[in-house]
Deep mutational scan, measured.
Amino acid sequence: MLDDRARMEAAKKEKVEQILAEFQLQEEDLKKVMRRMQKEMDRGLRLETHEEASVKMLPTYVRSTPEGSEVGDFLSLDLGGTNFRVMLVKVGEGEEGQWSVKTKHQMYSIPEDAMTGTAEMLFDYISECISDFLDKHQMKHKKLPLGFTFSFPVRHEDIDKGILLNWTKGFKASGAEGNNVVGLLRDAIKRRGDFEMDVVAMVNDTVATMISCYYEDHQCEVGMIVGTGCNACYMEEMQNVELVEGDEGRMCVNTEWGAFGDSGELDEFLLEYDRLVDESSANPGQQLYEKLIGGKYMGELVRLVLLRLVDENLLFHGEASEQLRTRGAFETRFVSQVESDTGDRKQIYNILSTLGLRPSTTDCDIVRRACESVSTRAAHMCSAGLAGVINRMRESRSEDVMRITVGVDGSVYKLHPSFKERFHASVRRLTPSCEITFIESEEGSGRGAALVSAVACKKACMLGQ
């Protein structure tokens, strides 16, 4: 009897593995994704193909990295998701002549009506938060230079001027797309009239992360975010950046690689679950690469896999709870928690219980395998993109072996128990001629924006502006 049951459990697990095998990517698959990513990057950089390229390769006008001589107080704003952060950054000489960066910050959550109302409502709310922060720190009387981390696709015309191309991540505030974001912020500050600010720089969160990590390690020339969304930036040779005049030196390019796949480059790798996630998203047909990796989508992918296993009578005796059938019910943090389970399955059992399920031991094991399959594919897909960037940098610099540091931020990278190990191992397999160091950014977005502002202020002083 026991043997029969054991055989049935083994057969069930084997069927589960057959279904989950769809998520496995072979090294040849990853090399294919990497080569296609490089081709799209090239198209994004070139003037004649930029418009139709899915990977936009947006110039950021960040050319210099901090040298350690900029000092002063800077205000930093960070808008990239449902939370908005205001930070005071003091850049100065530390002990023994070292450079020191001290920060104080406060988080504000953005109400739904500000995210989806008008641009005026959104930026009025942001300036209200700045006003509140300055009151708390008794700094209303000071006109501070301000660095703005704005983590949406922007076409820069200068370091302090950028046109919002399109909202992502659930934002829909009308009247912002096609307009200068810094102008919208300046107008809102003017409307309030109770404080003055000098907006000197606007950067993407990947750029802010790279600059913040450069402060720790001067070989950091790539910034990457794996959180709600997924994106990367890197220092490109100016001669390859056709959208900006000049051939000397390097400029940081914001790849906006989340949109890779929007022209069909990933079609052969998309599964039924991916198509369902895409169809029910706020932007169907867009940001397809990001939807395979980002935390906004990972939990939902797992939920759809679990429903398939229920329908195949391989999980929960073929019956799903009402909660499990509800879109968004299986949160991405559950994926991390399930994979963090120590082996007694308590954590998995508790999560499934909150979803109205009474799982068996085998159910718990199957749910864990589903989570591992989805998150491992995410790590491997992400590795193909980064390997594409790094191999490109090595080739354009004609280096036999390139040493490089990548600064990384984002909740999936930082909080998932195995993502970074799987990701690092896969990147290294795909970049055999590179020695890569990964560092995690601390308060990256805010500190990085302030350091970019410090560079901009120093330049302005040198130019006598």
Rank of each mutant, 00 (worst) to 15 (best):
E9Q: 12
K13G: 12
E14N: 09
K15Y: 10
E17N: 04
I19L: 14
L20I: 13
F23M: 14
Q24E: 01
E27H: 11
E28G: 13
L30T: 14
L30E: 12
R36F: 06
M37R: 00
K39G: 12
E40Q: 06
G44F: 00
E48P: 09
T49A: 07
H50R: 04
H50L: 03
E51F: 07
E52Q: 07
V55G: 02
K56C: 06
K56H: 06
K56R: 04
M57G: 02
P59Q: 03
P59F: 00
Y61A: 01
E67F: 15
E70H: 06
E70N: 08
E70S: 06
G72R: 05
D73V: 05
L75K: 02
S76N: 02
L79S: 01
L79G: 03
T82E: 04
F84S: 03
F84Y: 06
F84K: 00
V86L: 05
V86W: 01
M87P: 07
G92F: 08
G94E: 12
E95L: 10
E95W: 08
E96R: 09
E96M: 14
Q106M: 10
S109V: 07
S109T: 13
I110S: 06
P111G: 08
P111N: 10
E112F: 07
A114S: 12
M115L: 10
T116H: 09
E120N: 00
F123G: 03
D124R: 04
C129M: 07
I130L: 07
I130H: 00
H137N: 06
Q138D: 11
H141N: 06
P145S: 15
L146Q: 00
G147E: 01
F148D: 01
F148E: 04
F148S: 03
T149D: 04
T149Q: 06
P153F: 02
P153R: 01
E157Y: 13
D160M: 03
D160N: 02
G162K: 03
G162L: 01
I163F: 06
L164H: 03
L164T: 03
L165M: 08
L165R: 03
L165H: 00
G170A: 01
K172M: 03
S174L: 02
S174A: 03
S174T: 10
N179F: 08
N180W: 02
N180D: 11
R186S: 03
A188W: 03
I189Q: 05
K190E: 13
R191F: 01
D194Q: 15
D194W: 00
E196V: 04
E196I: 12
E196F: 03
E196H: 07
M197I: 13
D198P: 05
D198K: 15
V200P: 05
M202C: 07
D205C: 00
T206P: 09
M210G: 01
I211Y: 15
C213V: 04
Y214W: 15
E216L: 14
E216R: 09
D217L: 14
H218S: 14
V222C: 06
I225V: 01
G227H: 02
G229L: 03
N231K: 00
Y234G: 01
E236A: 07
E237W: 03
Q239T: 15
N240F: 05
N240G: 11
V244G: 03
E245C: 11
G246E: 01
D247M: 01
G249W: 08
C252H: 03
V253N: 10
T255S: 05
T255V: 00
W257D: 01
G258V: 01
S263M: 06
G264W: 08
D267G: 13
E268L: 08
E268G: 12
L271Y: 12
L271I: 10
E272W: 14
E272G: 14
Y273H: 11
Y273K: 06
D274G: 04
R275E: 07
L276C: 07
V277P: 03
E279P: 00
S280V: 11
S280W: 13
S280E: 06
S281D: 10
P284L: 12
G285N: 14
G285P: 04
Q286G: 05
L288R: 12
K291Y: 02
L292Q: 11
G294F: 02
G295H: 00
L301T: 14
L301N: 11
V302T: 15
R303S: 08
R303W: 04
L304K: 03
D311S: 14
D311K: 14
E312L: 13
N313M: 15
L315C: 14
H317A: 13
H317P: 07
G318C: 07
G318Y: 13
E319K: 06
S321P: 14
E322L: 14
Q323K: 12
Q323H: 13
L324C: 10
R325V: 12
F330G: 04
F330P: 00
F330W: 06
E331A: 13
E331D: 13
E331Y: 07
T332N: 06
R333S: 10
Q337T: 13
V338S: 12
V338K: 06
S340D: 11
D341R: 09
K346H: 08
Q347C: 11
L352W: 05
L352V: 06
S353K: 13
T354N: 11
R358A: 13
R358D: 08
S360T: 11
S360M: 14
S360N: 10
S360L: 12
S360R: 11
T361Y: 11
T362R: 12
D363K: 09
R369T: 12
A370V: 12
A370S: 12
V374M: 08
V374L: 08
S375Y: 05
A378K: 05
H380K: 12
M381P: 03
C382Y: 03
C382N: 00
R394K: 14
R394Y: 12
S396Q: 13
E399K: 12
I404V: 09
T405I: 07
V406D: 06
V408K: 03
D409G: 01
G410M: 02
Y413E: 03
Y413M: 07
K414C: 15
F419P: 06
R422H: 13
R429F: 10
R429H: 13
P432A: 10
C434A: 09
I439F: 09
E443P: 06
G444T: 11
G444P: 08
S445F: 00
R447Q: 03
A450W: 03
V452A: 15
V452L: 15
S453I: 04
V455P: 12
A456S: 15
M462E: 10
M462N: 13
L463F: 12
Q465F: 06
